[in-house]
């Protein structure tokens, strides 16, 4: 037998309203979609619940439809395998690129967009077996009192480790959220909080129903730092969107894996006509170095993650604006 899952009842609502009602009627209930994050957490004793509300049977969550004013509306239940193949999403290049780097292909068959956006934060002191964590006095994020990453601090430093959120953020995505008080909309960049133990802006009983994208426009890309070429979460990841090629280009960046929330970095100055492009991208790299605050939450040193994600940011910025790589001799991060 496997390490047993705790006992719970599984509810299978057929509509969003039924799901919200089920979550409201069962305090402490957790919403479940593909289960690739949640089931693992339940098995490792990182979460507990008496009720799982399985969103997989809600057909309304599975559509990709044209959104307002030429944008897209993507149901939260669309699987990552389906997203990667979606033709309209190809107009937002960073998004399918990010989707294809999530976990492994077998995970992507069932993992959903909503689940990826709502995944738990991760830390080397947290994503361990019960025995391991118990021997360490647990941690601030769950059942303990001290953050082993920053023992003098008063908040959890676990890192947000989703790949898709930054790619959506550089394209200006927002969320449609359903809950006991009806439906509300929220820019994705405002959905997350810089607290590893409470990083999601969801009230009790709420679920993410859809992601809304404005019309496509910017050229974009996504890249991540990881040890293994598949399955690994981002140890740092960067999405870049660029408004136009060459001079006049303006960049929006979003970073994952370095902080407890994915972080939008707006580069205020456009690449001016006649400006020294190399100096511009070097300044952009420095700005990313200053913006991120990786902690000792992963197996890679924070300093390495800071430098590598900044270098990747500059590389993607050059690429999306149509510049040749600065120096092909530069080692891969």
């Amino acid at each position: 037998m496997s390490e047993a899952l705790p006992e719970f009842q599984l509810l299978a609502p057929a509509s969003v309203d039924e799901a919200v009602a089920a979550l409201g009627a069962n305090p402490g209930a957790l919403a479940s979609a593909g289960g690739t994050d949640l089931i693992v957490r339940l098995r490792k004793g990182l979460s507990e619940t008496g009720t799982l509300v399985d969103l997989g049977g809600i057909a309304a969550l599975n559509d990709i439809t044209p959104g307002a004013g030429g944008g897209l509306r993507i149901g939260a239940g669309v699987t990552l395998a389906a997203l990667a193949k979606s033709a309209p999403l190809a107009e937002y290049p960073a998004i399918p690129r990010a989707v294809a780097t999530v976990a492994g292909p077998t995970h992507r068959e069932v993992a959903t967009l909503g689940g990826n956006l709502c995944q738990d934060t991760r830390c080397v002191y947290y994503n361990q077996s019960h025995w391991w964590r118990q021997s360490n006095g647990f941690c601030l994020k769950y059942r303990g009192e001290i953050c082993h990453v920053a023992p003098k601090g008063n908040r959890c430093r676990a890192a947000f480790s989703g790949d898709i959120a930054p790619a959506l953020m550089v394209h200006g995505a927002s969320l449609e959220i359903a809950g006991p008080d009806g439906t509300r909309h929220l820019p994705l960049a405002e959905f997350y909080h810089e607290d590893g133990a409470a990083h999601l802006g969801l009230n009790p009983g709420e679920i993410v129903v859809a992601v809304l994208l404005p019309p496509p426009g910017p050229v974009s890309d996504y890249a991540k730092v990881r040890v293994r070429a598949a399955v690994d979460y981002p140890l740092a990841g960067i999405a870049v969107a660029c408004t136009q090629a060459r001079e006049g280009a303006r960049f929006t960046l979003a970073i994952t894996g370095t902080n407890s929330a994915p972080m939008l970095v707006d580069i205020a100055d456009a690449l001016a006509e006649g400006a020294d492009a190399d100096a511009y991208f070097a300044a952009l790299e420095k700005q990313v170095q200053k913006a991120v605050s990786p902690q000792r939450t992963s197996t890679l040193a924070p300093h390495y993650r800071r430098l590598s994600v900044s270098a990747l940011a500059a590389r993607l910025a050059r690429q999306t604006a149509g510049f040749a790589p600065e120096d092909s001799q530069r080692p891969e991060p």
Binding site: L10, A12, G35, T36, I39, D54, G56, H107, E109, V110
Partner: peptide, 21 residues
């Protein structure tokens, strides 16, 4: 991936799949 089986013809990790689903 050692527990991979096919569910409706698509690969699936049976160690994180609920029978009820």
């Amino acid at each position: 991936g050692a527990c991979t089986v096919l569910v409706d013809g698509r690969p699936r990790l049976s160690c994180i799949a609920l029978v009820a689903g």
